[in-house]
Amino acid sequence: MKYKINFILNNENVEHEVEANRTLLKVLREDFDLTGAKEGCGLGECGACTILVDGRPVNACMMLGIEADGKEILTIEGLSNGTKLDELQLSFVNNGALQCGYCTPGMIMSAKGLLKENATPTEDEVKEAISGNLCRCTGYKKIVEAIMEVVENNK
């Protein structure tokens, strides 16, 4: 059986039908072709599927599609405005804060969620906020630097 849901997806109202047993991650990737959020573990441990739900970072693999009803969902694809990149995206590129890129969308969304709640976090707060996002390539240093650069620029 399918259920009708309404939600805001990357700043647009959408109406959609979902089966109850599909995760929001599957719905976004398969039904909307928004493949920026990745499945790295399926257990909420790696953060590669991080999106913003009502402005806060959530693992899309730990949420049913049907739970998106009435929510505002932002994925990495909705973060930039056309070819105009978000300041975090730019900073990641300029600081070399990515390697294979698989964790990158989730990492940026977690950082975005943090900055929405706290525009001036300390370095330790940044590290804590992205500790639910595993990166196996970078050693995290340039990621933290990229986020801190945005923080400094906005001070």
Binding site: E77, G96, L98, T104
Partner: peptide, 12 residues
Amino acid sequence: NRVDGIKKVTGD
């Protein structure tokens, strides 16, 4: 800068 940077930070 990485030549694949923008593709990766946008999820493209």
